[in-house]
Nucleic acid binder design. Structure first.
Lengths: 121, 121
DNA sequence: CTGTATCCAATTCGATACTG
DNA sequence: CAGTATCGAATTGGATACAG
């Protein structure tokens, strides 16, 4: 049973309106770096430096911005340990794990088909 | 059965590399306007003007760019009828329908939870 | 109706340097 | 180690005008 977009719009009519909450959250989690950070975290807790290395090509600025946004949205949990040197861990919240259950099949599909699709152009 | 990101990476090791095909396609379909255009098309064939109205806030330039990209990727089919005035129809290809089967649950989830999430910040 | 072309504004982004 | 601050480059994006 697949839900149609028409049904989604019917239940939440504002979904398509510019600036609505759905659009805002969509932008956060579907952003260039948001997807990749979330994907990495879906495999388990990560430290700042691990994310920096694992998400190939991300700058410190973008990692910081992306993480702060996702933490504010309640998707990512940030836990800092008052040690010297500092130790900070990032992980998915229950909400974030729920989200990634829907996102991973999509990422998997893209990983499977991307080569064929790019070859076309 | 949910696939883990680790498994996805294992089967397609380049998934996380900057500039790889997966990243390119991910950027196309997860882009600000790409998601919305695809969502609209998932409900059926649309003409240029219909998309322009239905995707609230999109400019002609961005609609043109987004559509061309998705057509090139083989996700969207473009059919133009040689009439005066011109008549052009856009629809999902089989590949596109396959993709949207994975994307719609995600969009639905976001539509459901977005209000709570934004309220937090 | 379905676009394209151009120009300009806004935003994103990366590199670098620096701090607790 | 885990960030922040700043700056300039690059990209995106919108408005407008116009063409087939």
């Amino acid at each position: 049973m697949t839900v149609s977009f028409a049904e989604i719009k019917a239940s939440t009519p504002m979904v398509f309106e510019s600036g609505c909450s759905t659009r805002v959250i969509l932008d956060h989690i579907m952003s260039k770096w948001g997807v990749l950070v979330l994907a990495s975290l879906s495999d388990g807790t990560r430290r700042w430096g691990e994310l920096r290395r694992e998400v190939d090509g991300i700058s410190e600025k973008m990692l910081a911005t992306t993480l702060r946004t996702l933490v504010d949205d309640g998707i990512v949990h940030r836990e800092s340990f008052p040690t010297v040197p500092p130790h900070v861990e990032y992980s998915l919240t229950p909400l974030g794990r729920d989200l990634m259950e829907r996102m991973l099949p999509l990422i998997g599909w893209v990983a499977e088909h991307a080569d064929t699709m790019v070859a076309r152009s």
